[in-house]
Design a protein around this nucleic acid. Sequence first.
RNA 1: GGCCUUGUGGUCAAGCGGUUAAGACGGAGCCCUCUCAAGGCUCAAUCCCGGGUUCGAUUCCCGGCAGGGUCACCA
Length: 548
Amino acid sequence: MDLKKLASTLIPDNDLLPLEEYEKMYPERQLNKGAEVTRLAPSPTGFIHLGNLYSALADERIAHTTDGIFYLRIEDTDLKRKVDGAVESVIRSLNYFGLNFDEGAEIDSPLNNYGPYYQRQRASIYRAYVKDLIERGLAYPCFCTEDELNAVRAEQTERKEITGYYGKYAKCRNLSEQEIYDNLAQGKPFVIRLKSQGSTENKITFKDRIKGDITVTENDQDVVILKSDGIPTYHFAHAIDDHFMHTTLVIRGEEWLSSLPIHLELFKVLGFKLPSYGHTCSLMKVDNGVKRKLSKRKDPELSLDYYRQAGYYPKAVVKYLMTILNSNFEEWERKNPTADYRDFKFSIDKMGKSGALFDIDKLNDVSKAELATLSEDETYAFLKGWVDEFGTEQDKAHFADADYIKKIIILICGIGGKKRRKDIVRAETGVRLFDYFFDDVFNPEYAFRFEKGDVTAVLSKFAAVYDENDDNNAWFAKVKAVAAEVGFAAEMSEYKQNPEAFKGSVADVAEILRIAVTGMPNSPDLCTVMRILGKDRTLARLNAAIQA
RNA sequence: GGCCUUGUGGUCAAGCGGUUAAGACGGAGCCCUCUCAAGGCUCAAUCCCGGGUUCGAUUCCCGGCAGGGUCACCA
């Protein structure tokens, strides 16, 4: 068979360059020894999720801790799944979480020498190599229809055989020259398949950077490398792109492990050096007692927007992911409490081999700890940002008064005290902590645990002596005095020794005041709350509670 | 089902033939205290099962069992 003729019939393109030219166009990168080139290669199908961020973080950390390159390539070979704006969304999302690309699609960078970074724009490179494979007898056209393929698969399943296009099932593999040209003449659509040289008899031990040694069999499937629309499949594009873009380390989800044999064969027949691979395990969750992979459809917590809406501090999400990615990260952080997480020596060897359950409790803990490191200005800026986007109209109005809000932040976060408070876990719930400082949303439930007469006595007696200029000691002395007057123990120690002798304790008196002023039995330092509210509103609330 | 892969407290996990089997989150309790939060202290809780190998297995081997992944002209 005249393979040269077949190749130019199948791939008639006249804009293809000799293969050496492509090699020259994409020379070796000039990087330091040990520098890793990693990439995020999403399909523009929609929005990036937590799983993507998880592996992107590994990519980004590895590249940037080795003085390497982290780039963005768009795998848009499936036109059916393209969504407008997806690329910008990916970049924006990653930036929001503090990850930046050095190079790639839609990235403004002088390093963009390995593009185009959209696969659809790289068609001629792929086609040149497919053509070469055909000429070398390593690829062939296949005219099988979808129905035929489905029928074969059904038959294979029936007989409990391995499904796919291989061996005796590879009908078009041995088509005669005449049959091929007849089919072509009839205008039948075709795909190009790899003529696999492998055999499942042969085992290959492969070293994965995350999973360690993995035993796989050689590929024997005549996989499609060029689809009928002339665009390559993922497998082929992966081999070509990661070769020419000089990716040194491919980090991707473990769902790719099963197609690794295909990639191994592709790199081999193409004569390319194999990059190293690290297959990450998926984030899991427990659903009805069953552990399963986090799903885009079923699990809102997989969406990155979920975290933005819930008001998680972006760096907290990243740090949480770091704790799963490298379990020694937390220990390092305890030893270096003020260091930037980027100073941590990220190591691919420390990455876990099995899928971690997504743990919202842990995230919450990381998040509140992270928020507790911010100044009042930073806290204000963060909460304000959330309020502007997701808050109610009242929230927006409240947060317009920066000075007032900052006073509350200093109280709620314990800024300036010995120990920071960690009341704010995330903005969505944290903003609610401000509500009782605003009359328009203050809506107390007076759940007093004492007799009306005692409550009224406490409230009115305290109102009579309250002075907003009192410091905490003076203030508390007055609370104690009121307690004593109404038959409550002024000292906790006295009360504990002899509880029956009193109606309650000074703590209960404080509770009554607190409920009247904040509407809740718990709050941060009441004295400060009153001072922030100011004398008039404090007294008004005290009186309102008496009336109620 | 075939193939690949994983299996240490509820969760994330150190551990690499001999350990009282770290630590963190979560839980319980105590202390502190005007409540809450924070903080300090304490407690409960783990090596999937069965065979080997070995003086000795959580660690090595084999077999079960259980989980996960994957079997497209999607990536």
